Computed example of a mutant assay.
Amino acid sequence: MEIWINPACSKCRAATAALDEAGVTYTVRRYLDDPPTAAELEAVLTRLDLDPWHITRLNEPAATPLKTLPRDAAHRADWIEALMADPILIQRPILTTDDGTTAIARDQETLSRLLGD
């Protein structure tokens, strides 16, 4: 299991605490220090069945230029580039189980589903 986190994020801390409590073995990726590549983002988006604008934190100050960027296939690469250039924009935490199931684990219900509770 792998979890992409920002240690300053309370949702990330809650998710790792839940994993610890469940006794799950996992790998932490601090994606601000180790930003995902375009291929990694595309793989996560495919597993999530989402587009990059769906996992973009548009309330971040760095997202201002994206607010007018079209949300369409023609601009998908621009969204991916923005997420790679400024990974603070990526919604978190993103958890991928060993079987490839991936979710944005911001709530207990999602965490419980991923942990098989």
Rank of each mutant, 00 (worst) to 15 (best):
L83T: 07
Y26W: 03
A43C: 12
E40K: 05
L66C: 07
P36W: 13
D117G: 03
W79E: 03
D98K: 11
T101F: 06
E60W: 03
M84C: 15
I55W: 00
A82K: 13
V24G: 00
A63W: 09
L83W: 02
A8L: 14
R92T: 09
T68D: 13
D20K: 10
G116Y: 08
D20N: 12
V28C: 08
T68E: 12
L41V: 04
D107G: 03
E60G: 08
A38Y: 03
A43I: 12
A105Y: 02
E109W: 00
Q108W: 04
A17L: 03
R57L: 06
A77N: 14
G116R: 09
T16V: 15
T16Q: 09
L66Q: 08
A38W: 00
A82Y: 05
A73P: 09
H54Q: 15
W79Q: 00
Q91W: 00
P65H: 09
C12G: 04
A103P: 10
L50M: 13
A74V: 08
L69E: 04
D86I: 14
T97S: 14
A82G: 14
P65D: 11
R13P: 06
T102S: 14
R106V: 00
P93M: 13
T46L: 11
T110P: 01
M1V: 15
T56R: 03
Q91I: 03
T56C: 11
D20V: 11
R92N: 04
S112F: 01
I80E: 10
L48I: 05
D78A: 15
I5G: 00
R57Q: 00
A38V: 08
Y26E: 09
M84Q: 15
A73K: 12
M84W: 02
R57D: 00
R92M: 12
I88S: 13
T25P: 12
N6R: 01
D49V: 09
A85Q: 15
